Simulated scan of single mutants.
Amino acid sequence: MLIINILGGGPVEALPDLQRFGGKDCVWVGVDRGVFTLLTLGITPDYAFGDFDSVSREEWALIEDKVANLRKYKPEKDETDMELALNWALTKEATKIQMFGATGGRLDHFLGNVQMLLKAELQHLPTHIEIIDRQNQLYVKGPGRHQLERLPEKKFISFIPVTPEVTGLTLEGFKYSLSNRHISLGSTLCISNELLSSSGTFSITEGILMVVRSSD
């Protein structure tokens, strides 16, 4: 099972403990200033992407010295550095892609990163993509029945439609259950739910939901 971890240039204070997400089947990818952040945390990225306009000369020299697979781009390009890294990761047929340093700071970058969660679903790829920070975990799911396990540190669970319509939404094992409910883009009906026991399920027949798991 291949897991690709991508660290962007978001605020360091929003990051979880990245050491928890390592492992022998894990590939680390740094994006722009995220490459330098990884190095300062004692993690040498396997790959690096970006125009590196947010690092100093001294930091760039360290990056050049430490990272073997370095892909540098001109600042004038059609994709963000994070999208370049994610597109590359999707070609590797990873089981899971985890994006860190993708929240906080500029809202335009944050919203762009959130939209990229849809890439695998829209392309019908089996890869699961998540955004993870110190307080939140975000991902999307399409039609089907999906199971959720309790995460004590992130007890709040929200379901947000990201397509114009989501039909057949059923929540089982939750404090606030639903059966075959229709919700539209912009609805806050499914904000801040909780599991009643160790696990629960949600299912939809059409559309795409964003799942947000949060701590208070």
Results as ranks from 00 to 15, higher is better:
residue 86 L to T: 04
residue 209 L to V: 15
residue 103 T to H: 01
residue 209 L to G: 07
residue 5 N to E: 02
residue 167 T to N: 13
residue 192 S to V: 08
residue 164 P to L: 06
residue 26 C to M: 07
residue 150 R to A: 14
residue 104 G to H: 03
residue 157 I to S: 10
residue 35 V to L: 04
residue 175 K to Y: 02
residue 82 M to Y: 03
residue 208 I to H: 05
residue 64 E to T: 14
residue 105 G to N: 12
residue 199 S to A: 15
residue 116 M to T: 11
residue 129 I to W: 04
residue 7 L to I: 12
residue 201 T to C: 04
residue 212 V to Q: 10
residue 115 Q to G: 14
residue 77 K to H: 13
residue 147 Q to V: 02
residue 4 I to A: 00
residue 76 E to V: 10
residue 142 G to L: 05
residue 159 F to G: 05
residue 88 W to S: 03
residue 57 R to P: 08
residue 1 M to Y: 08
residue 81 D to P: 01
residue 192 S to D: 06
residue 74 K to S: 11
residue 174 F to D: 00
residue 55 V to M: 03
residue 80 T to P: 03
residue 145 R to G: 00
residue 152 P to V: 13
residue 30 G to Q: 01
residue 19 Q to G: 13
residue 166 V to R: 01
residue 152 P to Q: 11
residue 139 Y to D: 04
residue 41 L to H: 10
residue 154 K to W: 11
residue 203 S to K: 01
residue 135 Q to M: 03
residue 184 S to N: 00
residue 12 V to G: 00
residue 85 A to G: 02
residue 177 S to F: 04
residue 192 S to L: 13
residue 214 S to M: 07
residue 174 F to K: 01
residue 79 E to H: 13
residue 135 Q to I: 05
residue 182 H to W: 10
residue 139 Y to Q: 04
residue 193 N to K: 12
residue 120 A to P: 09
residue 159 F to Q: 04
residue 37 T to Y: 11
residue 33 R to Q: 13
residue 137 Q to Y: 10
residue 21 F to S: 02
residue 201 T to A: 07
residue 180 N to H: 07
residue 184 S to K: 08
residue 168 G to Q: 04
residue 4 I to L: 01
residue 11 P to G: 06
residue 8 G to H: 12
residue 3 I to R: 15
residue 111 L to V: 09
residue 207 G to M: 08
residue 144 G to A: 05
residue 114 V to I: 15
residue 137 Q to T: 14
residue 140 V to E: 08
residue 22 G to R: 00
residue 88 W to P: 03
residue 90 L to G: 06
residue 120 A to R: 02
residue 130 E to A: 10
residue 112 G to Y: 09
residue 109 H to L: 04
residue 22 G to P: 01
residue 177 S to C: 14
residue 163 T to K: 03
residue 23 G to H: 07
residue 6 I to T: 02
residue 180 N to V: 04
residue 204 I to E: 04
residue 76 E to A: 06
residue 174 F to N: 06
residue 192 S to A: 09
residue 146 H to G: 00
residue 102 A to L: 05
residue 216 D to K: 12
residue 153 E to H: 14
residue 149 E to D: 14
residue 142 G to P: 01
residue 158 S to H: 06
residue 81 D to E: 11
residue 124 H to S: 12
residue 30 G to R: 09
residue 28 W to N: 08
residue 142 G to W: 02
residue 95 T to W: 08
residue 163 T to P: 06
residue 110 F to W: 11
residue 125 L to G: 05
residue 200 G to S: 08
residue 147 Q to D: 01
residue 139 Y to T: 14
residue 135 Q to P: 00
residue 210 M to T: 08
residue 213 R to D: 02
residue 132 I to D: 04
residue 208 I to R: 02
residue 154 K to S: 06
residue 112 G to Q: 02
residue 170 T to E: 03
residue 132 I to R: 08
residue 194 E to F: 00
residue 213 R to E: 15
residue 39 L to I: 13
residue 77 K to C: 12
residue 25 D to R: 09
residue 105 G to C: 09
residue 81 D to C: 06
residue 81 D to W: 05
residue 105 G to D: 03
residue 105 G to I: 13
residue 182 H to N: 10
residue 96 K to M: 11
